[in-house]
């Protein structure tokens, strides 16, 4: 009654970004098959313990939950290069607080891969004792990767930081999902961490970043990715 029948399960879609083909995976990762590269953003590892430090005893399972999803993703795509696009840890001491099982799981994922930690505002310093390379910004295959979107809007920029989400209202009901936000020239990644919330793409923080008529939100549904035009989206 509600659903249009789809003959392909779009658990990932192909999108063009500044002329280059990339895959957007519904788990919230960008894959560049030509470069054998996988990108995730805003893992916010150890956010639970960061809150516990100030008295909010959130369940201490967020790091393992995030890493388990990342592990499954890596097993599926098996990339040679992994970029964690900033705010990999919720605070500067997050890496030091990693429990041994998490540390081991992360090491296993990093083994045999080139691993790039992009500096974020939550974790400007390189994570201690984990290996991988730390960069402020990096260019691979014609795309540029940095944590915070730049104001001058260069083509081919992939950023994170804003935790984009989008909202539609249909039949008296609102649906809100994390999303990839893109106008075909630049792209902002959804946040990947288990405790990361989202900021609506209609918020002021996104002003000036996109060419609105070309804007698409690729929403992470339960079953697949849904591509929705700006005119359909609602603030809030």
């Amino acid at each position: 009654m509600l659903a249009r029948t789809e003959d392909t399960r779009r658990t990932s879609i192909t999108a063009r970004l500044a002329g280059r083909e990339v895959i957007l995976d519904m788990v919230g990762a960008l894959v560049d098959p030509e470069a054998s590269m996988l990108v995730v953003s805003d893992l916010h590892l150890e956010k639970g313990s960061s809150y516990a430090r100030r008295g909010s005893m959130l369940p201490p399972y967020d790091t393992m939950a995030t890493l388990a999803r990342l592990g499954a993703l890596l097993a599926r795509h098996d990339p040679a290069i992994v970029i964690s696009l900033g705010d990999s840890f919720h605070d500067g001491e997050g890496a030091a607080r990693l429990a041994e099982p998490a540390r081991a799981a992360l090491a296993a994922m990093m083994a045999g891969r080139q691993w790039l930690w992009v500096a974020g505002n939550h974790d400007p310093e390189p994570p201690s004792g984990l290996g991988g390379d730390c960069v402020a910004e990096v260019a691979v295959g014609g795309l540029r990767f940095r944590h915070e979107p730049s104001k001058d809007g260069r083509d081919g920029e992939v950023a994170g930081h804003l935790h984009p989400g989008a909202r539609i209202v249909r039949r008296g009901r609102a649906v809100r999902r994390a999303c990839f936000a893109s106008d075909g020239r630049r792209l902002i990644m959804p946040a990947f961490g288990a405790y990361t919330g989202m900021l609506n793409v209609m918020d002021r923080a996104y002003r000036g970043l996109f060419d609105w008529p070309e804007f698409r939100a690729h929403l992470l549904g339960r079953e697949r990715i849904y591509t929705i035009a700006g005119a359909q989206l609602r603030p809030g």
């Binding site: 509600l2 659903a3 249009r4 789809e6 539609i168 249909r170 039949r171 008296g172 009901r173 649906v175 999902r177 929403l219 549904g221 339960r222 079953e223 697949r224 849904y226 591509t227 929705i228 035009a229 359909q232």
Partner: peptide
């Protein structure tokens, strides 16, 4: 109101409009 797990179906509708 439509309740429950139909949220993906609503997203599909919105996508269809595009």
């Amino acid at each position: 109101r439509v309740e429950g797990g139909a949220s993906d179906a609503l997203l599909a509708e919105a996508e269809g409009d595009l």
